[in-house]
């Protein structure tokens, strides 16, 4: 296992780091899309997040790592086991599954176990990457290069939280709730709006242009490459503090209040920007709440809402080919018009 670059050591890229922490705090926000320049540490941040995530409780022996605390979301096998008695529990690492480019459909959704079928004539389901990613993160690097039929699959599963397999004479359904994390470079192709919409947050990653930050990035990366162990060791305290912050925020999340005034602000913002549907408002609310939880607040304020608004909204704007302003600018403009911030 190669060591991951520590999350705390990533220089700059505050918005991307914030979005990742928010998604880790409340998986319900629905994933992060990091789009931007080459060589800005998009993949590094995802891998770093994986190393940062605190472990979780799961049903022992379950292929989908069902959550014993959430009976309604158990897979059919766990439900059957539950009917016979209490479920054994184990502590497992949160899965962060890579969806490699060139992956074939059978490996993504799962398929008939060929070996057992050929050698023993049995019809058995062999879970795929979606099953492995349940309750964890599914990371697609170069998401814009993903083949269309796989994109369609992801869209469907990400929305329903359930993978339904009807192929090879199999009829299987299993939970597949995951946080979709995508990264890519817009120069190599754009994403379909339906897939964009599946991402709760999107961040634009720009290459830093000030010398001090650039030197900092190069120096840290170089130090890591020369002595990974020592470097990770040096950042461990900071990473652990961050992990504790995520855990505390998760615990606090349910009790954080969202005042009506903030909801109204969110609605006004969405109306001003003409976003489609209610998903934008819901994401705004959930994300602002997660940020308040990370900030140890009891109540969401306008400050949190405005802080996360660009990440939550910029990929949901209807594209106006004749408006020169980028979507980030449009969100900022709407904010300053509405709230004078």
């Amino acid at each position: 296992m190669t060591l991951a670059f520590p999350f705390s050591a990533i220089a700059g890229q505050e918005e991307m780091k914030q979005a990742m922490l928010l998604a880790a705090t409340d998986p319900g926000i629905g994933g992060v899309l990091a789009f931007g320049d080459r060589g800005t540490g998009k993949s590094t941040a995802v891998r770093a997040l994986a190393a940062l995530l605190p472990p979780m409780q799961a049903v022992a022996g379950c292929r989908y790592r069902c959550d014993p605390a959430q009976v309604s979301r158990l897979c059919s096998e766990c439900q059957a086991r539950l009917a016979q008695g209490a479920l054994p529990v184990e502590t497992v690492a949160v899965p962060v599954v890579d969806l490699p480019l060139g992956a074939s459909e059978d490996r993504v959704v799962g398929a008939l176990d060929l070996e057992r079928a050929l050698s023993r004539g049995e019809k058995a389901f062999e879970p795929g990457l979606l099953a492995r990613a349940n309750r964890g993160f599914l990371y697609v690097d170069e998401v814009n290069l993903l083949e269309d039929h796989l994109v369609d699959l992801l869209i469907d599963v990400a929305a329903s939280g359930e993978n339904v397999v009807e192929r090879d004479g199999l009829s299987v359904r299993h939970p597949a709730r995951f946080v979709l994390v995508g990264s890519g470079n817009p120069e190599e192709g754009e994403l379909r709006p339906q897939l964009l919409d599946r991402f709760g947050l999107s961040v634009e990653v720009k290459t830093p242009t000030d010398l001090a930050t650039r030197i900092d990035v190069v120096r840290r990366r170089d130090a890591f490459d020369r002595d990974p162990q020592g470097f990770v060791e040096g950042m461990r305290a900071a990473d652990l503090a961050l992990q504790a912050q995520i855990l505390a925020a998760r615990a606090r999340l349910a009790s954080v209040e969202v005042p009506d005034a903030v909801l109204e602000d969110a609605a006004r913002l969405c109306i001003a920007l003409g976003t489609d549907g209610l998903r934008a408002e819901l994401t705004l609310m959930r994300t602002a709440r997660a940020l308040a939880a990370l900030r140890e607040l009891a109540c969401v304020t306008r400050a949190e809402l405005l802080q996360i608004a660009p990440s939550a909204l910029r990929h949901r704007l209807r594209r106006n080919p004749l408006d020169d302003a980028g979507s980030t600018t449009r969100v900022a403009r709407a904010i300053s018009e509405l709230f004078g911030a």
């Binding site: 490699p100 490996r107 398929a111």
Partner: peptide, 8 residues
Amino acid sequence: RVARDGVE
């Protein structure tokens, strides 16, 4: 990393 043809 490979995930294709029934092989991971």
